[in-house]
Computed example of a mutant assay.
Amino acid sequence: MGVSETPDVVLDGQYKKLYEEYGAFTVDNYDKENSGTRRKAGVKKWLGWCQNEDINPFEVTESEIHQYIRSVNNLADTSVSSLFSSVSMFYLWIIPEDYPIEENPTSDIDLKDHYNLKPQTAEYVKVLRREGRENVKALPKDRITKIFDHMGNPPIRNSLLARLAWQTALRTDEISRIKIDNIDFGKREIRIRSSKLNPEDHPDLYIRRVYYNSNLDELMKDWINKRRAALSPHASDSPYLFLTHQSKQMRPSHISRLIKDAAHDAGIQEPICTDGNGNTRWLVTGHRIRHSRISYLANETPMTLPAIRKMAGHAKISTTQDYITTDWEQVRKDYLRSTS
């Protein structure tokens, strides 16, 4: 069954409004009528899923994008990739508009890597290029850590957030879902549900453990015991470590914005590319911190690749191996240091 042949979906409220506005956009921006029709059908299916799951499309997380992909994964590879491409292009359209969303929730998802799909359509490749995935790079520790003192207010919460992002290599979506009850303060261990992996396929990694260092003990204690309740009226009935004055849980987009702004203030931010709508993609992001931490652990510490893979939540060890440096001078120094 093709994407455009799926049963009709009846949209209401904001879902209907978004679909109609996107439909008007496709009329003006697609040269071929069938391309616009296919994109509209894909977006309608996505918004229909959001409506049925009671998900706000402006607050959707990467984890929920994965849920959606799994819900259509019984279709042919080309159909799944077309639906995914439609969702990604929908957010490329919506972000520059006057809507409360700043991050494309599809930008860090690779269908080939996560679902073993081979979507070789020109449209899919175009979306990946727009997202700047070809420019993904790790940054050195001394550059990343410069943002710690520029995280803005409230300083205790935001400093803890940035330092945990670096030490744990968690995704912003996962940071937003840290629950206080899932922190073992004695072991300095945090249990977190993966935003990417399927529990049936990866039962050992779906709930994984990440760790932080003793230098966060006082900051963690200060935030949880004093500042958290003073900041938010929701503190007593929110299970989440990070919350705001207005909400029981910080949104991933809020975390991403804090990190980007801190990088600007620290003087280390720079543009790396623009997407298809001319929007700037920035070098220092929450996901860049994750990449940088994994690279640091793989290349500058004695931590083994299997251990890094488990902490990073990679489905395959080959993903972790991609972080190993090809700097032969570093290889030579490591060899001389480890042998006599």
Rank of each mutant, 00 (worst) to 15 (best):
L170C: 10
G152Y: 13
P199T: 11
W49F: 14
G13Y: 10
I144K: 03
V125C: 10
I69R: 08
S214K: 04
Q51S: 01
L111R: 07
I178W: 12
A76F: 07
Q246F: 09
M89Q: 15
S256M: 09
V3T: 05
T145E: 15
I183S: 00
H150F: 13
Y115R: 01
L258W: 11
H314Y: 04
T172I: 15
R188Y: 00
L111W: 10
F90P: 06
N74I: 09
N198Y: 02
D173F: 03
L231P: 01
T320S: 07
D142L: 10
C273E: 14
T145H: 12
S63H: 01
S292W: 13
R143G: 03
N74L: 03
E5Q: 15
T285Q: 03
K44P: 00
P57S: 04
Q269P: 11
M303W: 08
V10R: 07
D12E: 15
D322A: 10
S85K: 13
S295L: 06
L18H: 03
L231C: 04
V80P: 05
K333P: 04
D108E: 14
A315N: 05
E59I: 08
E134W: 10
G286D: 00
R251L: 13
R227A: 13
K316D: 14
N215P: 06
T320P: 04
D184V: 04
D31S: 12
P302C: 02
K17M: 13
F58C: 09
E33F: 10
W46L: 10
A138I: 08
S176G: 12
R191D: 01
I55W: 02
T168H: 02
K196I: 05
D275W: 11
T145M: 09
G276S: 12
R209D: 02
T78Y: 07
A298N: 04
S159F: 01
Q269A: 06
H264D: 12
H150N: 12
L160C: 04
Q330I: 01
Q330A: 10
R130T: 08
I109D: 04
R163T: 09
T37P: 01
G2V: 14
D204V: 07
H291G: 04
R309D: 02
D201N: 12
P233Y: 06
S338M: 01
I308Q: 11
Q321A: 12
A162P: 02
I190G: 05
N52R: 14
T6E: 04
E62T: 15
L205E: 15
L83Y: 09
A162K: 00
L197F: 06
D28A: 15
S107T: 05
S292R: 08
Q14H: 07
Q120T: 11
M303E: 07
S256K: 09
H114P: 09
D327P: 03
S159G: 11
N104S: 02
I95Y: 02
I308G: 10
I144C: 00
E200A: 13
I190P: 05
T6Y: 12
K40L: 12
